[in-house]
Amino acid sequence: MTDKQNAIAYWKKNVKYLVILLTIWFVVSFGAGILFKDELNTIKMGGFKLGFWFAQQGSIYVFVILIFVYIRLMNKLDKKYGFDE
Results as ranks from 00 to 15, higher is better:
Gly33Ile: 07
Gly51Trp: 10
Asn75Arg: 12
Lys79Ala: 08
Leu50Ile: 04
Gln56Pro: 01
Val69Arg: 04
Leu35Met: 13
Phe54Thr: 05
Phe52Tyr: 15
Leu77Pro: 04
Trp25Ile: 05
Leu40Arg: 02
Ile67Pro: 06
Thr42Gly: 09
Leu21Lys: 02
Tyr81Thr: 00
Phe54Tyr: 14
Thr42Tyr: 04
Thr23Asp: 06
Phe36Gly: 00
Thr23Met: 10
Lys79Leu: 09
Tyr81Cys: 03
Ile20Cys: 05
Gly47Leu: 03
Thr42Ala: 14
Gln57Asn: 12
Trp53Tyr: 11
Ile43Tyr: 15
Asp38Tyr: 11
Lys44Ser: 14
Asn41Gln: 09
Leu18Asp: 08
Gln56Met: 12
Tyr17Gln: 09
Ser59Cys: 08
Phe48Leu: 12
Leu77Ala: 09
Val19His: 03
Phe52Cys: 00
Ala32Tyr: 15
Leu18Thr: 11
Lys80Leu: 07
Asp78Ser: 06
Thr23Lys: 00
Gly33Gln: 05
Lys80Ile: 03
Arg72Cys: 02
Phe63His: 05
Tyr70Phe: 15
Phe26Tyr: 10
Phe48Tyr: 09
Val27His: 02
Arg72Ala: 09
Gly33Ser: 08
Phe26His: 01
Lys13Gln: 12
Lys44Met: 13
Glu39Met: 13
Val27Phe: 15
Gly58Pro: 05
Leu40Gly: 01
Phe52Trp: 13
Leu18His: 07
Phe48Arg: 12
Phe63Asp: 03
Ile65Ala: 13
Leu22Asn: 12
Phe54Gln: 05
Ile34Lys: 15
Lys49Pro: 07
Trp25Gly: 07
Leu18Tyr: 03
Phe30Asn: 12
Lys49Val: 05
Phe30Leu: 08
Met45Pro: 00
Tyr70Ile: 01
Trp25Gln: 11
Val27Met: 12
Gly47Glu: 06
Ala32Trp: 13
Ile43Gln: 12
Gly58Asp: 03
Phe68Leu: 13
Tyr17Leu: 06
Gly58Arg: 05
Asp38Ser: 15
Ile43Cys: 01
Leu22Asp: 00
Phe36Gln: 01
Thr42Leu: 15
Ile34His: 14
Lys79Pro: 02
Phe36Asp: 01
Val19Glu: 06
Phe68Cys: 02
Val28Gln: 01
Leu18Arg: 05
Phe54Ser: 06
Tyr61Ala: 10
Val28Ala: 07
Ala32Leu: 15
Leu18Met: 08
Thr42Phe: 10
Val19Phe: 11
Gln56Arg: 13
Val28Ser: 05
Val15Asp: 02
Leu73His: 01
Thr23Glu: 00
Arg72Trp: 13
Asn14Leu: 11
Lys80Asn: 03
Gly51Gln: 07
Val15Gln: 10
Gly51His: 09
Phe63Gly: 02
Ile67Ser: 04
Gly47Ala: 07
Ala55Gly: 13
Ser29Pro: 00
Asp78Thr: 01
Gln57His: 12
Phe68Gly: 01
Leu66Val: 07
Gly33Thr: 09
Phe63Asn: 05
Lys37Gly: 10
Leu21Val: 02
Val15Leu: 14
Met45Asn: 04
Arg72Tyr: 12
Gly47Asn: 04
Ile60Lys: 10
